[in-house]
Amino acid sequence: MELKKSKACVLRVGGTNCDLEVKVALEELGLKTDILHMNQLADGTLSNYQMLVFPGGFSYGDYVRAGAIWGKEIFTKLRKELGKFTDDGKLVIGICNGFQVLVEAGLLPGNSVAGVPTASLANNSSAKYECRWIYLRVESRQTPFARTIKVWDTLWMPIGHGEGRFILPSEEALNELVKENQVIFRYAMPDGRPADGRYPHNPNGAAYDIAGICNKKGNVMGMMPHPERAFFGWQTPSQRGKRKARGDGRCVFEGAVEYIKKY
């Protein structure tokens, strides 16, 4: 689809943040982006968009569990429309709290807005809110969001979360996720080896160092790190007085835009 005719939608509720950063990132790549509050979504609104973003933040104050309330709101109000949206192969990304929301809605790692989570983003093992830059290892290119990067590339992005320890109910469920190439990003050492559970490289104790996963089809992805906070070079911390020319998070959005062009 011609990029000029395509649009992305960043959803917002009380407590979300970084919605504007995502809009700026996508528009920099030529994809027009609207920021809409959940209450502004009328029947059929979603069908105007090629991509849907659940941004970071603390939706509904993280009450009950991070992402739980918004996740259930999606189940009750948006189940059918979002189901059609993902069935059509359109893109959905959940960043940080957005990832927690997609898990609570049942959309990740499952395949439908079932309303019942099949995984959990539990409290960080460190019992701290972890807010810093971390290394990621690209594990799979199963999702369009990772199409412009290479497997085993190392990316540098910031995180900011208290509940990011990705866990699954069983070892089999984890094996299945790995086997299906649904693990996209893993926390890594600076040299690109997996963190292997070691703190501080794995900041939250996530199983298999999981930082981001996609659904079986690949068009729905959730990740704890914030690619939109590492989009421009000037957003990255300077190292020996030098900054990167472009942020490592840029590739996530570039992958999405490339997919939309071919959609």
Partner: peptide, 10 residues
């Protein structure tokens, strides 16, 4: 609990 208050994974 099943629908909101508890996450069956944990």
């Amino acid at each position: 609990c099943r629908k909101l208050l508890a996450n069956p994974t944990k």
